[in-house]
Design a protein around this nucleic acid. Structure first.
Lengths: 121, 121
DNA sequence: TATTCTGGTTACCAATGGGTAACTACAAAT
DNA sequence: ATTTGTAGTTACCCATTGGTAACCAGAATA
């Protein structure tokens, strides 16, 4: 859930953090990139996320205009998600974060045996 | 607390999100900017934060090399915080986020009567 | 007939996040 | 002698987050 105190702030930066300031949304946006993806794909690719949380976060991202949801009236259902113009405009920021981390990170690298989930990159 | 699953990822982006992917750290970094600030100042200026949470987040930011802590051996104690090179390098990213929000935000503005706390900006 | 497939929703429970208030040390000021 | 001021720490407790598993529709497949 979004923090209403932040979203109701008079500061645009505070409002931005209220909107995308958690760990799940940047992960989802980064995974989607310019692709159109279905719910099941996102569930499989976004690391460590559960269906419940994915559903919540996708709903909020749609409400905030970061992504578009296309539901096909088929059975079994098919739903496709893709970033809106606003969402796409956020991608370069995520690239900066990645570059920043690569440049400055000093922490020890994880052992190969430490990770169990497939991730992009 | 940081999410160890994220911080132990083999993906640099995921690790970055594990490090700064919450709402408090971007807020603290943004408030500090290039200034040197004392604990009490941060407590007063960072919106909605409590001393307990501020303590935790400052400790993690220091551990992750984003800021430096200077404790003077005086009474009453004086502690000063300022961003490290790594922390300063994160500021442009926050500026991008602010600009992104100003450009794309469509949500309704808060009524003046809605906010009670002084904030910078 | 039973299973599979998809994109959810729901109930239940455990873990985490976060707020408040009290407490600390000790010097300086009142 | 008491209050003030700083930068926390701690205990206690409530609220939020998040995980798991079960369940749904309804057509296609075996």
């Amino acid at each position: 859930m979004k923090d209403e105190r932040f979203c109701n702030s008079n500061c645009p930066f505070t409002r931005a953090i209220g909107t995308i300031g958690n760990k799940w949304k940047p992960m989802i946006i980064n995974v989607m990139g310019t692709r159109t993806m279905r719910f099941g794909q996102l569930d499989a690719i976004v690391p460590h996320i559960s269906r419940k949380v994915l559903t919540e976060q996708l709903k909020e991202l749609e409400e905030d205009g970061l992504l578009e949801r296309l539901a096909y009236k088929e059975l079994p259902p098919r739903v496709e998600y893709r970033l809106s113009e606003k969402g796409l405009a956020f991608l370069p920021i995520l690239e900066h974060i990645k570059a920043w981390n690569i440049k400055y990170e000093v922490a020890t690298m994880p052992r190969q045996s430490d990770y169990k989930y497939a991730e992009q990159d």
